[in-house]
Simulated scan of single mutants.
Amino acid sequence: MILVENLSKVYPDGTKALKGVSFKVAKGEFLGLMGPSGSGKSTLLHMIAGLEKPTTGRVFVEGIEITAMDEDQLSEFRKNNIAFIFQFYYLLEDFSVLENLTIVGELAGQKEPKKKALEVLEFLRLSHRKNHKPYQLSGGEQQRTAIGRALMLEPKIILADEPTGNLDLEEGKKIFELFLELRKQNGITFIVATHNQEMKNYFDRILRLKDGVLEN
């Protein structure tokens, strides 16, 4: 599903965020990316999503080299294949939960975005919160809303960067169980970056990063 070849990233200030990282991810795999803060986890996820360009190396998704695409091609490719979930929810504060999801569907040109949003909220057990604003939700509910926004595009791959970083352990476990349910129902491939050791048993496999290098 995903092939990462010899990725490196050197920022203008000389910081070496990644140093020759290579690995494969199978379709439907639930892969953990672990390591201390500053180890390169976020940079790696951004490159797999096409949000950043590597200094060297290549990324293939289903045999297509996304590192060779321009911004317009990447945007279209992401819309049809990849969703990104951040630690911070980035919800639109002036809009309801339902509106936050519907807007995504509208921007993607879906025929019935509101209907799709209601179906996603039902799956996420958030229907009773559909008319609430983000500030009226718990942290777990806000993160589930952010996940719902990602699901509006029916992605094949979900990349999540510290998705439980602002949640307590119990809420964090609920998010991981939701990810596994999505993998089971929809065959979504997940790469989840976390430094929370409590979550390691959820993963099929764990890659560990330290100072931009994959540890054996």
Rank of each mutant, 00 (worst) to 15 (best):
Thr55His: 12
Thr56Ile: 13
Thr56Pro: 02
Gly57Trp: 00
Gly57Met: 03
Gly57Gln: 08
Arg58Ser: 09
Val59Asp: 01
Val59Gln: 00
Val59His: 05
Val59Asn: 00
Val59Trp: 03
Phe60Ser: 07
Phe60Asp: 06
Phe60His: 09
Val61Met: 06
Val61Phe: 08
Val61Lys: 01
Glu62Asp: 13
Glu62Gln: 14
Glu62Asn: 13
Gly63Trp: 08
Gly63Val: 05
Glu65Met: 12
Glu65Gly: 08
Ile66Tyr: 06
Ile66Gly: 00
Thr67Met: 05
Thr67Glu: 02
Thr67Ile: 03
Thr67Asn: 06
Ala68Glu: 15
Ala68Tyr: 11
Ala68Lys: 15
Ala68Ser: 15
Ala68Pro: 04
Met69Phe: 09
Met69Cys: 03
Glu71Leu: 09
Glu71Phe: 07
Glu71Trp: 11
Asp72Pro: 07
Asp72Trp: 04
Asp72Cys: 07
Asp72Ala: 08
Asp72Asn: 13
Asp72Ile: 10
Ser75Thr: 07
Glu76Arg: 15
Glu76Asp: 14
Phe77Ala: 01
Phe77Lys: 00
Lys79Asp: 06
Lys79Pro: 02
Lys79Asn: 13
Asn80Met: 07
Asn81Ile: 01
Asn81Tyr: 04
Asn81Leu: 05
Ile82Asn: 12
Ile82Arg: 05
Ala83Phe: 04
Phe84Trp: 12
Phe84Leu: 15
Phe84Ala: 04
Phe86Cys: 03
Phe86Ile: 03
Gln87Asn: 02
Phe88Pro: 06
Phe88Asn: 12
Tyr90Ile: 05
Leu92Asp: 03
Leu92Cys: 03
Leu92His: 05
Asp94Ala: 12
Phe95Gln: 02
Phe95Val: 04
Ser96Asp: 12
Ser96Leu: 10
Leu98Val: 05
Glu99Leu: 08
Glu99Thr: 10
Asn100Ile: 02
Leu101Tyr: 02
Leu101Pro: 00
Thr102Asp: 14
Thr102Arg: 09
Thr102Lys: 10
Thr102Leu: 13
Thr102Gly: 07
Ile103Asp: 00
Val104Leu: 09
Val104Ala: 06
Val104Lys: 05
Val104Thr: 02
Val104Gly: 02
Gly105Thr: 03
Glu106Thr: 11
Glu106Gly: 13
Leu107Cys: 09
Leu107Gln: 12
Leu107Glu: 09
Leu107Ile: 11
Ala108Glu: 08
Ala108Thr: 11
Gly109Ser: 11
Gln110Asn: 12
Gln110Ile: 08
Gln110Leu: 15
Gln110Val: 10
Lys111Glu: 13
